[in-house]
């Protein structure tokens, strides 16, 4: 039981497995491969933004990045526009999207640090700027990704979607970063007590700066891949990832107060979030019932995971 309690992410995986089972059972097992494939594909995008959000939330109370949807839209729009204008294919797009991420991260932290605006307000305000920049840059026109890029983002390798492979590599890197590097320990230390961390000699500002940049880079990458995957960037393409990015962190068993996070939970929660909607769609429930059940089930999972940590 103690080993169980030490793994708060286990609940998201249990919930995910239950929902997967319930969905597949509906068709007597015939849909197992199809459902799994779709879940891996779409969870990959949630995982990418979820990891970034997790690092930010780990920094402690009040730290959250609300500019993720706008960043995704901006990166998706500008990268595909750059490929369309300059040619050069995937590398140009990737470069532009990462530059967008870098710029977004710097802008966010400048407001937070230099102007001393709380992160929740700072990232909300910058998100208006990023969204407007995306509108201004392309007026809502969808530019198609080049065939090679569109093909790559929708294909699979060894039976697993390419985007899921990318998310998996990023997950492993994030796990190493959080659990096995000084940077990760510092992020956790700041989240547990910023003052104590500062007194212990942790370069608090530098670590927070790097964390916001990391989050923006992951959001940009996710935006670039999502735009390539779905046949072009749309102005509202990031909208559903605001709540998702926070939800997967919390459902995954990371503490929303910061200082205590885990990486595997992000995957469990991302798959769970997708499969939950799929299950309710499969059972043919109306939109109202579906939304109520989504809320109730998420609450149930969080309570189950939270109950564990209390008894510890």
């Amino acid at each position: 039981m103690t080993a169980f309690a030490a793994r708060p992410w286990i609940w998201s995986w249990i919930a995910m497995a239950a929902v997967w089972g319930a969905t597949v059972l509906f068709t007597g097992g015939a849909s197992a491969a199809g459902v799994t494939h779709a879940a891996l594909t779409f969870a990959a995008f949630s995982v990418m933004v979820g990891i970034g959000q997790m690092f930010v939330i780990t920094l402690g109370p009040g730290n959250v990045d609300l500019s993720i949807p706008a960043t995704m839209t901006l990166a998706g729009t500008l990268s595909l526009k750059a490929i369309d204008a300059w040619g050069g294919g995937t590398l140009v797009g990737l470069g532009v999207s990462l530059l967008v991420g870098l710029g977004v991260g710097i802008a966010n932290f400048t407001l937070i640090r230099a102007l001393r605006i709380p992160p929740i307000i700072a990232t909300l305000s910058t998100s208006f700027i990023f969204q407007s920049t995306a509108i201004w840059a392309n007026r809502g026109i969808r530019i198609k990704p080049p065939d090679a890029l569109a093909g790559f983002s929708t294909d699979m390798t060894l039976g697993v979607p390419n985007v899921a492979w990318i998310a998996l590599v990023l997950t492993v890197a994030a796990w190493v970063l959080l659990e096995r590097t000084i940077f990760g320990r510092r992020v956790l230390a700041i989240g547990q007590n910023m003052r104590a961390a500062r007194l212990a000699g942790v370069p608090v500002d530098g670590v927070r700066f790097a964390t916001y940049i990391l989050c923006a880079l992951l959001a940009s990458l996710a935006g670039f891949l999502l735009a390539s995957f779905s046949g072009g960037a749309a102005l509202n393409m990031g909208a559903e990832y605001l709540l998702t990015s926070i939800a997967v962190v919390v459902i995954g068993g990371s503490s929303v107060a910061g200082g205590n996070s885990n990486v595997p939970g992000i995957w469990g929660a991302s798959l769970f979030m997708f499969l939950l909607v799929t299950m309710l769609n499969t059972y043919g429930l109306g939109a109202g019932v579906r939304l109520i059940l989504t809320g109730l089930i998420i609450i149930a999972v969080i309570v189950a995971a939270g109950g564990r940590t209390r008894t510890r």
């Binding site: 068709t27 199809g34 499969t282």
Partner: peptide, 10 residues
């Protein structure tokens, strides 16, 4: 695309 991909297998 996401919603249809999810429900299609069933």
């Amino acid at each position: 695309q996401k919603a249809v991909a999810g429900v299609l297998p069933s």
